[in-house]
Structure formats: structure tokens, C-alpha cells
Amino acid sequence: MKGFKIIVLAKQVPDTRNVGKDAMKANGTVNRAALPAVFNPEDLKALEQALRIKDQYPGTTITLLTMGPGRAAEIIREGLYRGADGGILITDRKFAGSDTLATSYAISLAIKKMAPYDMILAGRQAIDGDTAQVGPQAAEKLGIPQVTYCEEIVSINHKKVTVKRRLERGVETMEAPLPVLITVHGSAPECRSRNAKLLMKYKHAQTITEMQEATDDYIELHDSRPYLDIPEWTVADLNADEKWLGLSGSPTKVKKVTNVVFKAKESKVLTDSDEDIERLIIELLENHTIG
């Protein structure tokens, strides 16, 4: 059987899972800029599902698609080291401020440009926003079905794919026609590690912007090894309608952000008086601990 053409959606995210002391500001709030940028964990698991198909069906190609600032090319290299065949970075200042709807619009245009494809794989959600919306929204815009919370791709042929999905209290096995968008759940297996040979091969994979900014000149190397090019696509490359991008294309607006303050566990000691108890209740209501 010939291989499959798979697109993996990936996002570079601040690592919100382990907020250490050095990422805390003096006032007890988290310093977002101090958190390391990582390959979103469930997107890595989506890559693993794609790599397993590639192991089984030689000729399968895996292309990573990410949207973000220039530095997001880091996760494309990370994917190449683990077995992906290429990657595309969608980047443009005009995307700034995009919510999930505007993001899914940009991503769906890029996917259309990459067509034909058999399957799109993505993590269920990213650890910075936890919305789980971009995958299904992109599927809707592409007019293809979706299977969310995949734990395992059981089998695939050129007509259909069988997927085991993890629900809150059980599992479902689904059969979907290709092309389909599948989001991968945290209970799916971890991604394999970097491959030493691939690390050597793709060490100098860069976007044009990175090449221009680099001190070493790899232009000649890229001329002889075109696989080192990481294409950058802008709004113009996507033929996007700017009305649907960035802030203007984002129906949701952030009205207010409150930092959750982590206090050292110095207990406030209260008595059982009416005043103390009522003050506590009001405080808990105000900070939305209870509603």
C-alpha cells in the first residue's frame, strides 16, 4: 500500500505545567516570559501517532504546521529530529491577537494550500489556553469530519481510519472516512525521542528569517540541501482576508485578567465568630473560589 500524506498541527507553548520559583514575580504571580517554550505535549503525542503510521507504511510523509512568532521554528526542528519530513511556519504580525476562531481560519487556509492530504493530526488542546477548539474549528472550515480524544489509531487504509477515543467514562471505537482531522488525547503514548542521525541531518534547518539573522552563513548549504528550508507563510501567501484575522477576526475579547497569587502556606487563623466566617465567605466569592 502506498503511504499517506499527514499534516500534524503543533504549537509552541510556555511550559505552564511546572511553574518554579524562578518563574514567579515578587508579588506571587507567574512571570509568563520566564517560562521555557516547549512543544505542546499533546501535539507531540499526535506526532507519535503519525510516526507510527509512517513506520508501518513507508512512503508516508509527515508535515508539521505551526503558527506563531519566528522562534516557533524551534518546534519544527524538534519534529524533524523525531522523524517528520518537513514543516511550515505561518507567521505574520497580522495574526497577533487571534483567538481560536481566527487561528483556525489561518490554519485552514494553510491546510488548503497543502492539499491533497489524507489526515490531519493535532493534540487535543494546548497547555497555555486549554480550549481544545482549534482542531474542531479547522475541521469545520475544511468541511471534513473530526474524531477527537484519540488514544490509538487502530488501523488505516486509503478509504478509512479506525480510531479508539477516550471519553470521560469510557472508550469508543470510531470509523471515519479520509480525509479526517483527529485530535490526540493525553492518554495516548509518549512521542519517541530524537534520532541522532536526524539531528545531524536537520541541525541547520532554518527559516529564511533565521538565516538572515544568523551569524554563520548557511545559504550555500541550503542551496545544496533544500530539505533544510523551513518555509514561512504570511497573510499574503495564504490569500487570507484580513478581516478574519488577528483582533478583528476574533469575536472573543479578554476583558480582564487576574493573576492567581500563590501564597506561602502561612495560614490565616480565624475564629468561629460570625464576622470571621462571613468575611471568609465574601473573600471566596470575590476570588471565584466558590460561585
Binding site: R17, D128, K253, V254, K255, V257, V260
Partner: peptide
């Protein structure tokens, strides 16, 4: 509708609105 949710791994609480849609 003020839609209030934790974000950023629970480190912030955001109030989201949809003014126009």
C-alpha cells in the same frame, strides 16, 4: 455575558466577552 475561566495552567483567571457576535 462575562465568561470567567482559569487559563495558563490555572495561573490566571480571565474574563472573556463576545461584544459583537
Amino acid at each position: 455575558l462575562y465568561q470567567i475561566r482559569p487559563a495558563f495552567g490555572g495561573n490566571i483567571i480571565a474574563t472573556i466577552i463576545n461584544p459583537d457576535t
